[in-house]
Amino acid sequence: MLWRDFDDLNGFWDPWREFEWMRRRLSRLISEPTYDFPPVNIWVSDDDTVVTTEIPGIDPRDVDISVTGRTLTIRGSRKSEELKEEDSYHRRERWSGRFSKAIELPFNIEADKVSARFTKGILYITLPKAEAERPRKIEIKSE
């Protein structure tokens, strides 16, 4: 496909390439890749972006997703186990407490159409691109 070929050409501006590059550069500054919590994976198509994150054991009501312009913010908290006085930890490795993470996407988000799903401890957030920023197919008329 013609557009695909263009995409692979050097110098063709891909906002996602820049996004990844920025992130790598930032993490190099801190020497170790330290991402703020929770870690996310980002998937894109022409029309939208899907952000996924693993936050097991959380009550979906304790998660707050907000969108402004190009920024997605995920906030939430997970309570630690309630222990009685005689109970004791042998191991305590699981995280607990509050978290907040903001992700800036390379396009404006259609805030009204954002949807989220929580299944098996994984959160899926679908963020459609603002109408004006979607790629448009232009028909070529033959005379």
Binding site: E54, I55, P56, G57, E81, L83, K84, E86, D87, S88, Y89, H90, R91, R92, E93, R94, W95, K120, G121, I122
Partner: peptide, 22 residues
């Protein structure tokens, strides 16, 4: 998986974070 292991009076509880598992 990250785990918590808690000893209680009558039992031991093992809790493991395994997102994506049912």
């Amino acid at each position: 998986p990250a785990v918590d292991i808690i000893e209680r009076r009558d039992d031991i509880v093992l809790i493991a974070d395994m997102p994506g598992v049912d």
